[in-house]
Amino acid sequence: AWQGRSIGTPKLRLVEFMAFMEQQGEPDAYNKHLYVHISQSNPSYSDALLESVDVRQIYDKFPEKKGGLKELYEKGPPNAFFLVKFWADLNTSIQDEPGIFYGVSSQYESSENMTITCSSKVCSFGKQVVEKVETEYARFENGRFLYRIHRSPMCEYLINFIHKLKQLPEKYMMNSVLENFTILQVVTNRDTQELLLCIAYVFEVSTSEHGAQHHIYRLVKD
């Protein structure tokens, strides 16, 4: 059911992705605030098929030189490319004080036993400002291989960025800043260098009182 309806290819599927802040020492969900969240653990045939976006519409929002989105897309495979529009939830009741943990967790699954490399590039005006590269090994569980990046600490740049964003008085100002803020995640098979997933993230601030929202698109080139 997930094919065509969620982020994944026959080789690797995203199960969950979240960026959060948490009061340390009390790791129950009550003290955890999710800035963004994707959960694809229960795909259903009733879920709508993904819409598509022409990848050329967003080239300049991501690195354009060597290893940039254009080059990655041309190399393919095209079915591994996705765009996520996040409406991030900045309405946190957790006070920002020492001891707050800022983290990112993600989980992927596959029918193959691989070692994966996940690169996350934070970009400002399309230029990379920081990159984190993580390597994950498979764990066999319930008949499939799971890759879990658990509570990876958010970088200083992102924490400062969130702080500054929250200080802006109006949502339209935040959205204006977010227009030039993007993240590109590339997951590759470490041993074969095959591209498994490429996810481009763009952002607005959520106006909902029900937490973060998102739309997922396939990236295509007609």
Partner: peptide, 24 residues
Amino acid sequence: GKPDQVPMRNRQLPPSFWEEPRPS
């Protein structure tokens, strides 16, 4: 720096790109 970017609103993006989903 880069030349001025085209605002996202002026790009060919699906209408849903500007519609925050309702919570399920």
